[in-house]
Design a protein around this nucleic acid. Structure first.
Length: 483
RNA sequence: CGGGGUGUGGCGCAGCUUGGUAGCGCGCCUGCUUUGGGAGCAGGAGGUCCCCGGUUCGAAUCCGGGCACCCCGACCA
């Protein structure tokens, strides 16, 4: 592949990073552009990554008592307009259906940009008593937002996600739920995707349209820009009031439930590429790699092939039986060298090379994608060796990413210092912040935003002046340039 | 919505300035030789040159209009 960018491309070379990213997406066959502007196809290899993400998240959500359901794609326009902040936030991004069956509709329908409204309309029917609470719903769905500027996986008009919607009897319960999900996401992203995250809550202006508070996870991409990895909102009683969802509590008093919503999306595939990718292409963490091991048989003549095949099959079966996702590349129209590069581009964590020499020595060559080291391993202990290496790759990718974050995290006490730190080293900058609208506008002029306010009170505590206006700060938080 | 760019076999491009009826690389097909880091040779298939209109004996090329997509910035997972 003809990448001209390295992973740690920074300021001034953003364009190269962007080109590298798109090249990688297309060449690794994760996604492709379509006839529809701003919409992409997720190709089988990319979709397989999404399915692995889904499996983990779905299992964890069910384990914490959530149930899957499915709500309609089309929502009456009037629903979106019921919650004031919500409509303000989403109106510019709506696609509206005005005709059906050749007739103009009496009420336009919007293609869901998110499903709060249609779900709350149903909850108003389903919830009557505190005994009906909590409601813990999740749906896997597509949503549509008419984005101006799109980029594969990171921002497309239509995207796939999981959206959770819950309703509770008390504020405390809803807040606990929102935080429970935040922790679940953090575990998912760190343990499965091997991406370190910074967790916190959003400022007033950055929070979800219609939420009381928004919790967030932020990660640094390979160009030191931050990316929001997912969100968990405490919606308060905003939506239950807008949709007149009520219940009778233990004392027979009527009240509005407290609710949450939360989501992670196919954007995470983009994050995977931008955090772990290198000049050779993708580097997938084993836990979400469609193929964890690829076997490349090597032969010259037919006799060699016959000699190699039984060992290839033995190794494949041994690994498959041990639960390893393994692929054998028997293509004979391309050379081994081509296959090496091809699978490296696709990010397969381990490659096993098996040729006549290996059959003779009863060993195989194992190459790691993350470090590109090659070692010889005896066939007898191959399963254990592969498990050990897969764990090592998973751990190393996280460690590398964590080192990158550490190298791109700094702090600033003055405005000039902040401006300098945003460029060198770039990434996260910790500052004292007053939490005023004016200061956020000033920060926006530097192309940066407040990414997250620490949840931990001690961590968030500040005694100094705001880095922007000099008035006493409300907290210490993390700012960054972001996607 | 502003700025920039591009539309020519499947993909990437050249040709356009100075009109003469389309070429290169990759890929694809067939055969032989190859195969431990992106194979070689030979043969072959494949194009309404984005669309509409104009100028001209003749338009990928010149003129006018339109469309589409990509990239960069402000909003967003």
């Amino acid at each position: 592949m003809t990448t001209e960018a390295e992973t740690d491309v920074q300021d001034g070379r953003d364009e190269a990073f962007s080109k590298w990213y798109i090249d990688t997406v297309l060449k690794a066959e994760l996604a492709d552009y379509t006839a529809v502007r701003g919409s992409m196809v997720i190709r089988p290899y990319g979709y397989a990554i999404w399915e692995l993400m889904q499996q983990y998240v779905d299992r964890e959500l069910k384990a914490t008592g959530h149930q899957n359901a499915y709500f309609p794609l089309l929502i009456p326009l009037s629903f979106i307009q019921k919650e004031a902040e919500h409509v303000e936030g989403f109106a510019p991004q709506l696609a509206v259906v005005t005709h059906g069956g050749g007739e103009e509709l009496t009420e336009p329908l919007v293609v869901r940009p998110t499903s709060e409204t249609i779900i709350y309309d149903m909850l108003s029917k389903w919830i009557e008593s505190y005994r009906d609470l909590p409601v813990l719903l999740n749906q896997w769905a597509n949503v549509l937002r008419w984005e101006i500027r799109t980029r594969p996986f990171l921002r497309t008009a239509e995207f796939l996600w999981q959206e959770g919607h819950t309703a509770h009897a008390t504020f405390e319960e809803a807040d606990e739920e929102a935080l429970l999900i935040l922790k679940l996401y953090v575990r998912f992203i760190q343990d499965e995707l091997a991406i370190p995250v910074y967790q916190g809550r959003k400022t007033e202006s950055e929070k979800f349209a219609g939420a009381l508070s928004t919790f967030t996870m932020e990660s640094l991409m390979g160009d030191a820009k931050a990316l929001q990895m997912g969100t968990s909102h405490n919606l308060g009683q905003n939506f239950s009031k807008a949709f007149d969802v009520t219940f009778l509590d233990r004392e027979g008093k009527r009240d509005y439930p407290w609710s949450t919503s939360w989501a992670v999306t196919t954007r995470l595939i983009g994050a995977l590429i931008m955090v772990h990718g290198d000049a050779k292409g993708l580097r997938l963490p084993p836990r979400v790699a469609p193929y964890q091991v690829v076997i490349v048989p090597i032969w010259r003549k037919d006799e060699d092939r016959d000699k190699v095949e039984p060992l290839v099959e033995d190794v494949r079966h041994a690994l498959g039986d041990a639960g390893v996702r393994v692929k054998t590349d028997w293509r004979d129209q391309v050379t081994p060298g081509f296959k090496f590069n091809d699978w490296e581009l696709r990010g397969v964590p381990l490659r096993i090379e098996i040729g006549p020499r290996d059959v003779d020595s009863e060993s195989v060559v194992i190459a790691r994608r993350d470090t590109r080291e090659k070692t010889h391993a005896p066939v007898s202990g191959i399963v254990d060796e592969v498990h050990t290496l897969l764990e090592a790759v998973q751990a190393n990718l996280f460690a590398e990413a964590a080192r990158y974050v550490a190298a791109h995290t700094s702090s600033a006490d003055t405005w000039d210092e902040l401006r300098e730190r945003l460029i060198d080293p770039g990434g996260f900058v910790t500052v004292n912040w007053c939490d005023s609208k004016e200061c956020e506008i000033a920060l926006a002029a530097e192309k940066a935003t407040v990414r997250a306010i620490p949840l931990d009170d001690r961590e968030a505590a500040s005694s100094g002046p705001c880095v922007c206006c000099g008035r006493p700060a409300s907290f210490r938080c993390v700012v960054a340039r972001s996607y």
